Each structure stands twice: as structure tokens, then as C-alpha cells.
Computed example of a mutant assay.
Amino acid sequence: MGLPRIAPMLATAGGLPPVAVEDRWAFEVKQDGQRAMLYLPGNGTIVLRSRSGADISTVYPELAALGSVLGRPAVLDGEIVALDDEGRSDFERLQSRMGLTSAAKAARMAEVVPAHLILFDAVHLDGHRLTGLPYTERRTLLESLGLDGEHWSTPAAVVGHGGQALETTRTAGLEGLVAKRLTSVYEPGVRSRSWIKIRHIRTVDVIVGGWVPGRGRLTGLPGALLVGETHEGGLRYVGNVGTGWSDTERTTLTGLLQVAATDECPFDTTPHVAGARWVLPRLVGEVRYATRTRAGMLRHPSWHRLRPDLAPNDIT
């Protein structure tokens, strides 16, 4: 049976729904991993696709068995994570798995850093498209599949009690929540207000457009990254990020910046930054920040992580 390609629905950053209406929302733990759409034709095989649509099946061989566990044609939505010793998703651990092209190396890494798939939606089942059904019905269908095993699970969602749920994730050291309106349909490829991601810290995905060399022990390494956000027709500069890296991350970024070097500034307006070096706008990163200026510039930004799972057009 042919399965339709379905782009993942995306959440909008925001805060908790008002207490008076929180019983109209379900709350799920926000996972810190790689988004994946699962295509299971019902013949024992499985295809995993990233948010950009790339086939990442080879990268996670331990998830292949799910194809034989579910003997029904389906398209499911979830997040691939690597768990730490406390059972929390750890993106830094997962990064060692992402982007592998060798099946043999992926199999070896699966033994060292096993992946776990968190399932949270069903968008196609038994030849029927489910995107037009409300969240509650899709969730019931997903849970009825009984998909819980060593490398995948279907964690429960909580209806109402958003404040308590958010505090629980904070205490547990988790990233936050995703609030989902109970009546919401699945909107493929849309960043919707029906799904709200609530983080304990403010973060934003940015595109690296340049860098400034460091000094002293950082000579030859980036001292700061110049970052921007896309808008219709261009890339708007939103600030420079000079903190938050480990030595390993700084070294990794150095190699990527050298490969992407260009003589032309990729930003709409060239920022007045002494010693700036420009790069092709293709590296995506996630930045923490305190707040924004009225002009949209990031205040007190710090580097959180590189996002090799995202391309620039994924964050428009």
C-alpha cells in the first residue's frame, strides 16, 4: 500500500494557556531530539524521514524492528532521542548518531548510544488519512496500537493541570511542555497556534552568517558568531553570540565555518562588526537569550547547540 508523504506539524513558542481553559488542552513533555515521520507500509519495513524529508532510516537501525511489530500500514509522528542516565533526552548524546551515512558505523554507534523513539501522533492508519480528526481521536488511535518497547514508547499526555505539569518538568530537569488543543486537527507543515511549545528558557533557531576570530588561546577559532533570522526575501541580523560553547563544539564550528567561507555578507544589512568574516548561510544553531530589544535584537545570547538536523529553510 502506498503511503502519502506528510510534513510534520510544528508548534509555536508561547506560554501556558489560561487556567480557565486549560482543560481544553493536553500537555506532553517536550523532547530534545530529532523529529521524525515514520512510514510503515505494513510489510515489515519502515522508512524514517527527518523534518526536512530526508531518509534517515540507516542512521537508526535499532528502530527498524518497529516495522514488524506494527503489521498495519501507518504514518506516525514522533521524536528520536538519546536518553541520559536519568532517562532524560540529551541532544548532545544524540548528535553522535545524527548524520551518519555508513550503515556499519550506525550499527556500532547504536550499541554505544542507543536511540529511543517517542511517539506522539498518528496521521495515517489502515489506508485512512487522520489529519482531519481532532487531536483526541488521533491520540486514542495511537495509544490503541500499544507501541511500547525497548527502543520506542508512547508516553501519556495530561489533560489540564498545565501549571503542575510545567513545574514537574522543571523539577525533573526537562526542557518543558508542548500544549496541544484537544480539538485541533493535524496541519502538515504548518507552525500552528494549536500546538504551543513552552520552554523553561527562551531559545531561538538562528542561521550563522559570519564570525569574528578569537584572541589569545582562541586565535584561529571563533570568538563570536554573527547570527540572523530569515524573513521573506532575506536574512536579518539579530546579534552576535560569544558564549556557551565547549572546546569541542568550538573546534567543530571552526571546521564548518572554514568550509562555508565566502566574501559576501549574507545579511540584508551588513552589521558593523570589526573583523567580521562571512559564511554561506547554511549552518543552523539554537541560541538561548534573555529577551529582545524593540528592534528584534537578542539580549544576552549564548550558544546552546548546533542543529545539523535542520536546514535554513526548515526554520522560516
Rank of each mutant, 00 (worst) to 15 (best):
K180D: 02
Y237T: 08
R191P: 01
P188H: 12
Y186N: 09
G176A: 03
E150P: 01
G189L: 04
T230E: 04
S153F: 00
G234I: 08
V238Y: 11
L256A: 14
E175M: 13
A165S: 13
W211D: 07
R215E: 15
P155D: 08
P271N: 07
I196M: 00
G239L: 14
T252I: 14
V212T: 06
T230W: 01
E150M: 03
G210L: 11
A179K: 06
W211Q: 01
V185F: 07
D247I: 05
R191M: 07
R191E: 14
L256Q: 15
V190Y: 11
T243D: 07
H161A: 06
W152F: 05
V208I: 12
T270N: 05
E167I: 10
L253Q: 00
H161I: 02
V159C: 00
G162W: 04
G233M: 02
V204R: 11
T269V: 13
A179E: 13
R236H: 06
T243I: 06
N240I: 15
L182P: 01
L221E: 00
T252A: 02
V204K: 05
E264H: 13
G242A: 04
L177A: 01
V158Y: 03
W152C: 02
A224I: 15
E229H: 15
V185M: 04
G189P: 05
P271S: 08
L253D: 03
L257C: 11
L166A: 11
